[in-house]
Write a protein that binds this DNA or RNA. Structure first.
Length: 289
DNA sequence: CACTTGACCTGTCCGC
DNA sequence: TGCGGACAGGTCAAGT
């Protein structure tokens, strides 16, 4: 799914497009989709103006003028795509662009705006969700209580990074990196990329990671996340930004989904193994046990 | 408590 | 071309 850089890319795109727009209707085609409470939808979603779009870890928060917020998790295949009336079949937009074909069979929620624009929440695998809750209740959500620090926050130090792992001494470094309560926002792509960058084998137990390796991992996590945001995230199949367009980080990937190709550092063929139940890409020469 | 595994869904790709 | 199985960017609830 979208990891931190993909969710941040969506957030930036939405902030440009939906803030100030007024929601006049919502339609959804699955019960899992959202607004579980019809009364709240009627009173706090319809007619609301969007006032802000925030992100914490991989969760998006769309704040409304009514004091409620839409909370969204895209999980593996979720998308939030904004389409203005001018976009459809407009000049300069490729014919194969998603925006000309939405809604489609993966569309779970459609939010219609007063000016004719729409925001589509699509999710092929239906793992994602969208909820409507009072904005003031967000900080007390169990997710917000448990989630670790944002890796790109200026206040997030190398010392804090290392300290977060003390609770996961016996597990693999990859499983710990994927644990959202340790550090927020890392997923399968950027875990592999950061481990490759720091030359750390993903199955290494956390308690065996040296001071220098923690320093390298800290720097790599931040560098990889920053570069990915700059490139608009990674796209394999389903991920798109708020304009329905793909990101380009995969052009810069050094290990992820590069099995069978040479390691950019030493030329050894990248291998794919399984760690913590996830497909994992390593250079067997650079990342030794 | 720490840790691992399976389940949640749909679609696609790969080998027979 | 058809079919079964493995797998896909995430997170829970179970299990040990």
């Amino acid at each position: 799914m979208p990891e931190l850089p993909e969710v941040e890319t969506v957030r930036l795109g939405l902030a440009d497009r939906v803030i100030g727009r007024i929601i006049i209707a919502e339609m959804h085609d699955t019960e899992k989709g959202f607004p579980n409470a019809p009364v709240d939808v009627k009173n706090f979603l319809l007619g609301a103006t969007i006032t802000g779009v925030r992100r914490r870890a991989k969760v998006l928060m769309i704040d409304l003028s009514t004091g409620y917020s839409l909370i969204v998790h895209l999980k593996m295949t979720g998308q939030l795509v904004f389409v203005s009336p001018d976009d459809r079949f407009g000049a300069g937009h490729p014919n194969d662009s998603l925006i000309n074909t939405l809604p489609d069979k993966s569309t779970r929620v459609t939010l219609s705006f007063k000016d004719g624009a729409a925001l589509y929440f699509n999710d092929q695998r239906k793992f994602g969700w969208m909820k409507l809750i009072p904005t003031a209740e967000i900080p007390s959500l169990s997710f917000m209580q448990k989630v670790g620090p944002e890796p790109l926050d200026a206040s997030f130090t190398k010392e804090a990074f290392k300290e977060r792992f003390t609770r996961r001494k016996k597990t693999s470094i990859k499983a710990a990196l994927l644990d959202q309560s340790v550090v927020a926002g890392i997923g399968n792509i950027y875990a592999d990329e950061a481990l490759w960058g720091a030359k750390v084998h993903p199955t290494r137990k956390v308690e065996t990671i040296t001071e220098q390796e923690f320093t390298d991992l800290y720097n790599e996590v931040r560098a990889v996340m920053s570069l990915a945001i700059e490139k608009g995230g990674s796209s394999n199949h389903t991920y798109v930004n708020a304009e329905g367009k793909k990101g380009s980080y995969m052009d810069f990937a050094r290990a992820f989904r590069r099995e069978g190709l040479p390691c950019p550092r030493c030329g050894t063929i990248i291998e794919k193994i399984r760690v913590a139940g996830r497909g994992t890409h390593i250079c067997p020469h650079c990342q030794v046990l």
